[in-house]
């Protein structure tokens, strides 16, 4: 019986082990990016910018050239790269602490300039790497190590909605929030990432895909329970969908 390989590790990923915790969906998001870059035949012309956060070692995982940024500065670093090498594909991979706290100015202004880069924004409602502290995306009532009784709205306000916020910026060409908590979500997420890179290729402007992601370790859940927790608790606060698509407006 003849058989075809229908799924294998992407050629866009180095043949090294990921350091992520068991079942952490950072790994799924990495593969989707790698698969898209290979499918679009861009991997040899791409420079990725890694964040400070659990994904800091992303520079060891992708087979494309990689640049490690300071905490929150990935959009500025990516801007420098893209302006120096306008023909290359440039992406940033950033967590919610990285992008929505310390790096808020950089992401807003990259979007404002319509910087022709793609940002993969991984929202796991906490600072994974440093041990589960509160992020701007932490849900009201969610227990984190710097709000052990749960995030209080009175004290800290409500979670920031990055996709909604950036969708108000004209320079943004495509903004979508996706999730990788089930198979349908993973397939949708890959489509969104692909669209973002295609639009970057076309020079449409800034593109960002927010990916809801799990942090089983700091959430204190098994990986499968974490997927359920994401579905039940995160999606109601961070609804999935396309928040900005200038190609749709054209129609």
């Amino acid at each position: 019986m003849e058989m075809d390989v229908v799924y294998q590790k992407s050629a866009g990923l180095e043949d090294v082990e990921f350091h992520y915790c068991p079942g952490c969906t950072h790994g799924i998001i990495h593969k989707l990016i790698a698969e898209v870059l290979v499918e679009l035949d861009l991997i040899g012309d791409t420079i990725g910018v890694a964040p400070v956060g659990c994904a800091v070692f992303a520079y060891d995982y992708f087979t494309c050239d990689m640049h490690e940024a300071a905490h929150g500065r990935a959009p500025a670093v990516a801007t420098g790269i893209k302006r120096a090498l306008p023909d290359k594909t440039v992406f940033t991979y950033q967590g919610d602490g990285d992008l929505a706290a310390i790096g808020t100015a950089e992401i807003v202004h990259a979007a404002m300039r319509g910087e022709k880069i793609t940002t993969i924004f991984v929202n796991n409602t906490n600072y994974g790497m440093t041990g589960g502290q509160m992020a701007p995306t932490t849900l009201i009532g969610q227990k984190v190590t710097t709000a052990p009784l749960g995030r209080s709205k009175e004290h800290y306000g409500s979670p920031i909605k990055v996709s909604e916020m950036l969708a108000t910026i004209e320079g943004a060409a495509y903004i979508e929030r996706v999730s990788v908590h089930n198979m349908a979500g993973i397939i949708r997420a890959k489509k969104a990432i692909k669209k973002a890179f295609q639009l970057q290729q076309e020079g449409a402007g800034f593109t960002l895909i927010e990916v809801l992601s799990t942090c089983p370790t700091n959430w204190g859940l098994t990986p499968n329970d974490a997927l359920n927790w994401l579905q039940d608790n995160m999606i109601p606060v961070f609804p999935l969908g396309v928040y900005r698509d200038i190609t749709a407006e054209d129609k």
Binding site: H67, T79, G80, I81, K82, A84, A105
Partner: peptide, 21 residues
């Protein structure tokens, strides 16, 4: 390429990116 950045922090990190390129 001339680019006015949103801050000195962003400007030096743009330099970091361009220098890497």
């Amino acid at each position: 390429v001339f680019l006015q950045a949103e801050s000195e922090i962003a400007a030096i990190n743009m330099v970091y990116g361009a220098a890497g390129s």
